[in-house]
Design a binder for these strands. Structure first.
Lengths: 195, 195, 195, 195
DNA sequence: TATGAATGAGGCTTCATTCAT
DNA sequence: AATGAATGAAGCCTCATTCAT
């Protein structure tokens, strides 16, 4: 920090480098699609491919880090919802909306997210977090009689993922995702006197 | 070797040849995944790449043909259901089950099916057929008060597709697809006195 | 003619077939460039590739035939010039203009024409015809003191070919060919009192 | 093996590697023609195709580099001529001879050179250099009354190119090029008392 | 004689990843 | 720790040409 010098990177630590890569990668994912060549990302970040790999051994690792670093912060989101003092049903619904938004930050994200379910990838832990939180909200909703007892957090998560994925097909008609999510909601929600 | 015999295909057997390619392709799709290299398919079918391309100019065309030729025959399936003299609700449900099965014949099929919705591909016409038939069943169900008026065939189709896709993640737990489809059903079905 | 009937080709003889191919090939050469795939030509002519090859064993043979059949008729052109009763210098100049035009009928024609000089191709005889005629005009011009004695018909032919070829580079500036041909003319022409 | 030695190129020798590729490419161009497959060049150079492409993104780029690296050094040639203290007419003539030699280093070179005139390719800059120098010599010649005022450097360049191209047809008879160039010279040169 | 299916070599290019420095 | 050159397998596709009917 004190003795910065040469051109490229302030001679500085991996820290800064890593952050820079993440920034560039995020941009690449957004603009070039989720399967940009790793080399392209490296080049755009002004690092050698090996540096990229050192920091993120697999593409999934990179994606995962980008998601954590620059995607919507679901943890905070959950906290906000919980702090909002809304009913447990509202809370669950808002949570699912947030989750859907998170799944949509990159076109094509649903696919690796699904894979993270099938096999263990770098994204898996994050996904399990999300599922766990979903379960928390769901449990509360069940407790208050707002959700069926036989529904699981994983189902809700996967259903949401599926809806987002499907909606990706119909860019023109965003309502599709809504309608599918709507259908799904009928599947988990219990009729509610005052809702 | 089965269906092929002599070394060199006699000219008239172009059809036999085509059928052979379809057979091999189906096997490849099933065993090697939906994105086997075209060249590999050609090689396994003992034809030059050009022959493959002559018969099926694009991978989608091939997939489409394979589906038509060797996948479940949905047209017949629809006829059977209609002939079965079950109620329109049952009919719709059975139809959706059939559609789901069709979507599942190859691992990874949902993706190109989804794409066929976004852009016009060789699969698109077939998909539109399926959607149209879905609409037919749905209309009947609506008429009998078994389905909500605001649901469309396309939504049901896409919802089913999404469920199949999502379930692909959990090969171990097929119940997931069921549960998602169940949720969806709650979305379109109307409560039924006698159901 | 009398007994024409079915769809494609009036049931008729190779003759008609050949003519049709030539017609189509000429169009292809003009529109798609001199190196259209043989298969494309065949397809556009509604014949099998083998038929094409039967009639024209090599691409050069086809090109040669097309040139003879549909290109400018240089033989007639020569006759016209000779009948025109212009001076031998004028005659030579007009002839060279005609030759240049002939070389320009298809973009890219100069190349095979040049090759026909290097090795014997189907175009060679025609080219030698043209050279012979050039020599005739040149001889006359020499006799009348309009051309240098040490220039040969082949040189004039090749010079013209070169100029046409070079001009192909500068589609925007057709004057280039003129200027080069002009330079060349200074090379063969003798100063002329009354010209 | 000559210039290469150990099995694996040490990293710093990227330049050596590049040089090696150029050497091999030059040989390939000379022996196999100007349109050798890129892969063949790569193979002969013992590098992967990607390495070749990394160094020379297009075939033209490679050709251009080979020309610069291993072809006649026209810049030096021009300097030599200028230093020679010959008359401007001689200078121009010698320059054109040098240019012709340069155009002849690879069989088939005229074609890409011509293309470089029609569209911008990797060769274009070099060609424009040559044309500019030609113009310089030509201007001097004009000043001394040795060349017609209406001739341009570009015409001379293209005329020379055309002559070299044409001569390529008659490998047996190199005199053809000479004669064509001779004709051209009559086109630009002014009669000279003391010539 | 015409057909058009089949051949199969071969061109181009890209990518994830490793390795020497 | 960073670099970026190198790898080499692999994908896609096309074309002139032949062959069985």
């Amino acid at each position: 920090m004190g003795s910065s010098d040469s051109g490229r990177q302030p001679r500085t630590d991996a820290q800064r480098n890593r952050a820079h890569i993440l920034e560039v990668a995020a941009k690449c994912f957004a603009e070039l699609g989720l399967d940009v060549s790793m080399n392209v990302i490296a080049k755009k970040a002004n690092v050698g491919p090996a540096t990229l790999y050192r920091n993120f051994p697999t593409r999934d690792a990179l994606l995962s880090a980008v998601l954590d670093d620059r995607g919507p912060d679901l943890t905070k989101e959950a906290a906000v919802i919980e702090a909002a003092e809304v009913g447990s049903r509202q809370a669950l619904e808002r949570w699912l909306v947030a989750v859907a938004a998170w799944m949509r930050v990159y076109e094509g994200l649903p696919e690796p997210l699904r894979t993270a379910q099938a096999e263990h990838t770098s994204l898996t832990p994050r996904c399990e977090d999300v599922i766990a939180t979903t379960d928390r909200f769901l449990t509360a909703a069940k407790r208050d009689g707002h959700a069926r007892a036989d529904v699981r957090g994983g189902d809700l998560y996967l259903g949401t993922l599926a809806a987002v994925w499907a909606a990706g097909a119909i860019s023109a008609d965003d309502a599709v995702e809504l309608r599918i999510r709507e259908m799904l909601r009928s599947g988990w929600a219990l009729a509610d006197s005052g809702d």
